Computed example of a mutant assay.
Amino acid sequence: MPIDEIDRKIIQATQAGLPLVSEPYQAVAEQLGLSAQTVMLHLAEMQQTGVVRRIAAVPNHYKLGYRFNGMTVWDVEDGYVDDLGQKVAMLPFVSHCYQRPRHLPEWPYNLFAMVHGKTEQDAGKQVAIIAELLGAQARNHEVLYSTKILKKTGLRIGG
């Protein structure tokens, strides 16, 4: 989707993150000589068209004390994966959940759900809850724990 000059300026002003102030859209607006309403409308339109996927806080789980961050991967029967995936995504401790294609025979997993625990036991309890929810439709699973933090960045455009 094409973006206009205001979109480009908003992206450039926010690509490193929104300002950590009580009114971040107002701060961006003042920086760009726009109204906060204009900034919010443009961001909403960019979300609707898919230029901007989402606006969200990205916590550092390690700094919050969550040392056991695991991507759980599940081999769920294809006929059940959509319905069960939605249920897993609704669990309060799952930060993101999605379906991906299998790559047989090496990779039989098609449902992914990220869990975060302060202890290995905490994470294990969360995995057990997911396993119970998936029941017999989950034939196998693994938990892939994070070993380091990777810097996440979004869209970057030059000026």
Rank of each mutant, 00 (worst) to 15 (best):
I6S: 05
I55W: 02
N69W: 03
Q86P: 11
V143F: 02
E132W: 05
N60Q: 09
L41K: 14
Q47M: 08
D75S: 07
A16C: 15
K152M: 14
P2I: 10
M114H: 06
G85H: 04
D82K: 15
M71E: 02
M1N: 12
D4P: 05
K63C: 07
T38G: 15
E106M: 13
E45G: 07
R67W: 04
A13N: 01
L150A: 15
R100D: 15
P108N: 03
H96W: 12
D75Q: 05
D122G: 05
D4G: 09
E5C: 14
L104K: 02
D78R: 11
Y98P: 02
S35F: 14
P105K: 08
R139G: 11
L111G: 01
D78M: 12
K151S: 13
D122F: 05
R53P: 06
A136T: 09
V58S: 04
I55Q: 10
S146W: 00
Q15I: 01
I130S: 06
I6V: 12
A56D: 09
L104G: 08
Y98I: 07
S146C: 10
P2V: 09
H141D: 13
R100Y: 14
V21K: 15
L20P: 04
V51N: 09
V21P: 15
A16I: 13
V73A: 04
L43N: 08
G65P: 00
T72G: 06
W74L: 00
Y109P: 00
V81D: 10
K87L: 07
V127R: 14
Y66T: 03
L84A: 03
Q47C: 08
A136E: 14
F93W: 01
D83T: 11
W74C: 03
L144G: 00
E106C: 10
E142V: 13
A29C: 09
L32W: 09
R139S: 08
F93Q: 01
Y98L: 07
Y80L: 10
P19Y: 09
L104Q: 15
L91E: 05
H61N: 07
R53Q: 14
D122W: 06
Q48P: 05
Q31S: 15
V115D: 04
S146E: 02
V94T: 03
